[in-house]
């Protein structure tokens, strides 16, 4: 039972009708059970009738199972699926603006290169880095950049897609 209580991060993918109000209905399922949403991405799909939502939330497992079932019950949700533990392609994009005086530029650029990031803006004393990868990789890069004093960050939120013919 103890294991069940442990808070874990879960990536849930939803295919939903592209209609007003769907996001609120989905958010209410989480909110009613006191579940916090860590990240949420809504985007169009190749079919204009549907939208894709990718939600990362953390909390206890029994509640999460209940949430997935309740999400699937929503008339506007075509399907909701928890991809945690499955082999999926996972990506996130981050823009990170760091204080960057000339004497620290080299070190910051080295870190950027290590994480395969790009410099997308540069001023006298700031640098903006764009980086793409797994959420964990972005977290590691942020740790490395912390000592240079980060001015702001914007992250896209996690995107996932099932491999091969599996549907997301």
């Amino acid at each position: 039972m103890e294991k069940m209580e442990k808070n874990e991060s879960h990536a849930i993918s939803l295919l939903v009708s592209n209609k007003p109000g769907v996001l609120i209905r989905v958010a209410l399922v989480f909110g009613r059970r006191g579940y916090n949403i860590d990240s949420l991405v809504v985007s169009p799909t190749h079919d204009p009738r549907f939208s894709r939502m990718t939600i990362v939330a953390s909390g206890d497992l029994p509640t999460l199972w209940q949430i997935i079932k309740q999400l699937n019950k929503l008339v506007d949700v075509i399907h909701a699926h928890d991809h945690t533990g499955e082999i999926v392609v996972e990506r996130e994009l981050a823009l990170i603006k760091v204080k960057c005086p000339a004497d620290q530029r080299t070190e910051i650029l080295q870190i950027t290169e290590h994480f395969k990031g790009d410099t997308v803006d540069l001023t006298e004393d700031t640098i903006m880095i764009q980086v793409t990868g797994s959420s964990e990789m972005l977290d590691s890069m942020m740790v490395m950049l912390e000592k240079f004093s980060i001015i702001e960050t914007v992250r896209s939120g996690k995107l996932i897609m099932a491999r091969g013919h599996e549907s997301t």
Partner: peptide, 14 residues
């Protein structure tokens, strides 16, 4: 009203 109704209906339309 559709917003208020979400938690108490099976479905709602505007």
């Amino acid at each position: 009203v559709s917003g208020i109704s979400y938690p108490v209906v099976k479905h709602s339309y505007l």
